[in-house]
Design a protein around this nucleic acid. Sequence first.
DNA 1: TTATAATATTGTTATTCGACGATAAACGAT
DNA 2: ATCGTTTATCGTCGAATAACAATATTATAA
Lengths: 119, 119
Amino acid sequence: MNKLFNEQDESIAETAKALAHPARVKIIRLLLSKTSCVGGEITADLGLAQSTVSEHLRILKVAGVIVGEIEHPRVCYTLKPSSINTLASFLEQINIKASTAKTDDGLCCPLENPFEQKD
Amino acid sequence: MNKLFNEQDESIAETAKALAHPARVKIIRLLLSKTSCVGGEITADLGLAQSTVSEHLRILKVAGVIVGEIEHPRVCYTLKPSSINTLASFLEQINIKASTAKTDDGLCCPLENPFEQKD
DNA sequence: TTATAATATTGTTATTCGACGATAAACGAT
DNA sequence: ATCGTTTATCGTCGAATAACAATATTATAA
């Protein structure tokens, strides 16, 4: 059977998934704010059980968003910014589209609808 | 009880979640590639059941990523680029960090680790 | 070698997600 | 009023996610 989605779409979705939890966003913000990298401070800052935080860290590691370096008995986590490049340029394309295309060039809907959408 | 996460982190996570499935990424790419907005072509292009696609479209709508305008009997979908602004600038911050901070300024781990990480 | 940190893993539970077929809803045209 | 076309909703199922406590792991220090 044919694969439904291409590599790039899968990759973008995977990175997005890694960011798709407020705890993980908070972890990243923490790593952004510190000049030094944090170990178990992350657990303290999050207000979640240690095992839960460890799992969030694992997810971020698997996605390549962070890297962990062992400094026994701690682990020192660092951002790996290149991991988000594909997702970032995908979002960039959306913004380019926003600035380029206005409602006059064949779009059938206004790009920024001033009215509430009925759902 | 105290809220665990702040508004912005929740918002970023929500937007990321909307993008966290290859089918939804593909839908967005489709809307990027078309000058005219598509109706049910999306369903045809995805290779998923109509009800499944409809659900993905609903998720994107709820997240504000797309807008649907009824043109009976179709619905015309359009990107709403402003919806991704918060997520985009979050990613931007990560990149800024990447270009600013090198390994010399107090980081305990190299930003781009040339070695495979043992897991 | 034994204790002692910090982090990882395991087992469990409740919830959410993703997919589908079947059916409903909407409305313009006949 | 009925039909035809397109999209939305419902019900169901299995799989994945998120949380926690309890336990295991690991390597340095004593």
